[in-house]
């Protein structure tokens, strides 16, 4: 899922500095699961902003609301009748959600209340880690189910580099060396021979480098 984390309250206060009536919009998708932008976080953010504004002597009227998803047009329709009542929306969906709201409702500013960090997993309660960079050409079949593009700090396709020590990456002693992980699993599976082969120079055009991406499924179009 997409993992995000709340922006510092002071940053959001700056965005809404001169406003008196806002809508805080949560999302029940990924950001609910990673406790960054769901219904609960909408409530917490609303209380924090209210409190700060009360302290500053500048009242703020807040409406709290959450949608099933902010990345689907049908759910975004649910705010069409109310959005004109507000001076701005603080969306705490991922960056895709924030942008889709902004795209559909152009009259008022839509501010991001969280930072969108990565595509990842819940490693344990309260700990999320990155797994995928959406490069658009999955190579996991070559690398023991561990992504070198994501897990190697240099995205090396033929690692590990000379900075791998005791299973850790040179960049941070807390970060595991992705290539050590790949070697370990292929060794366990008796498939180390896979690594004798050079993974060729990559075609990054399927990645972000090819520009904003689009998928069209003719079989599904209405």
């Amino acid at each position: 899922m997409i993992i995000g984390k709340g922006k510092p309250i002071k940053d959001i206060l700056t965005m809404i500095e001169n406003l008196s009536k806002i809508l805080i919009l949560g999302c029940r998708g990924c950001v609910t699961v990673c406790s960054a932008g769901g219904e609960k976080e909408v409530g917490i953010l609303a209380s924090a902003l209210s409190l700060a504004r009360q302290k500053a002597g500048k009242a703020l009227e807040i409406r709290e609301m959450s949608l099933e998803r902010q990345c689907d047009p049908e759910y975004l329709e649910q705010i069409r009748n109310i959005i004109d009542d507000y001076e701005a929306v603080v969306s705490i969906a991922c960056g895709a959600g924030v942008q889709f709201v902004a795209e559909k409702y152009r009259k008022i500013p839509i501010y991001p209340g969280i930072n969108t960090n990565f595509i990842g997993v819940t490693e344990q309660q309260g700990v999320w880690t990155e797994r995928c960079q959406a490069c658009g050409d999955c190579k996991l079949y070559l690398t023991g189910g561990i992504c070198p593009v994501t897990r190697c700090s240099k995205s090396l396709l033929n690692g590990p580099c000379g900075g791998s020590a005791n299973g850790k990456c040179e960049v941070d002693p807390e970060t595991e060396c992705g290539w050590q992980l790949i070697i370990d699993v292929l060794k366990e599976q008796g498939r180390l021979d896979k690594l004798e082969v050079i993974i060729p120079i990559n075609d990054w055009s399927t990645s972000r480098d090819g520009g904003p991406r689009k998928i069209i499924r003719e079989d599904l179009k209405l």
Partner: peptide, 21 residues
């Protein structure tokens, strides 16, 4: 370059082999 002192040690020579290839 080659770093015989990095880990995993047993893989270091394989990496050299890839550079040679």
């Amino acid at each position: 370059a080659a770093n015989p002192f990095a880990d995993p040690f047993d893989f270091r020579v394989l990496r050299l082999a890839k550079k040679v290839a």
